[in-house]
């Protein structure tokens, strides 16, 4: 059988490389440098294994409003929505999930100076 291994993305995460977070904040849709591409691949491939789920968005209003949600890894388990976490831009949603994933990998949140950095496009 041809299967994908959810644990296959094993690029080593280095919590000191906060410049990669800044790069993502400035250009969430890219193009990205080589290291940021690898970091994003690791985050996106694995999902959020510690939660048994993947951070996702649910469309509330097409191309205008999105809600943070969790997609369980197991089929048939309902999507869990977070009605108070609403985004009006995909870039803000990407940044929010990036911060959560960074914190999960590093064991600590991003430094405030970076977490609060101004958005790019």
């Amino acid at each position: 059988m041809l299967v994908n291994d959810p644990a296959a993305a094993h690029w080593p995460f280095d919590p000191s490389r906060v410049e990669l977070a800044l790069e993502f904040r400035r250009r969430p849709r890219g193009p990205h440098g080589d290291s940021l591409q690898k970091l994003l691949h690791r985050m996106r491939w694995n999902g959020d294994a510690e939660r048994g789920a993947r951070w996702i968005l649910v469309v509330v209003e097409p191309n205008r409003r999105w809600m943070l949600a969790e997609l369980p890894f197991r089929r048939n388990q309902p999507v869990r929505t977070f009605p108070n976490e609403i985004f009006t831009s995909l870039a803000e949603a990407e940044w929010e999930v990036f911060k959560r994933r960074w914190a999960a990998l590093a064991g600590n949140p991003l430094p405030e100076s970076i977490a609060d950095a101004p958005a790019g496009t």
Binding site: H41, W45, V58, E94
Partner: peptide
């Protein structure tokens, strides 16, 4: 986008499910 490990990496960004997709996740 619900079941396949590669979906978010392939699509190069957060998965944005429609209400239809949300329904399908628990109505196979």
């Amino acid at each position: 986008r619900l079941d396949q490990v590669h979906a978010e990496a392939m699509l190069e960004g957060l998965i944005a499910l429609s209400p239809d997709d949300v329904y399908l996740q628990s109505h196979r």
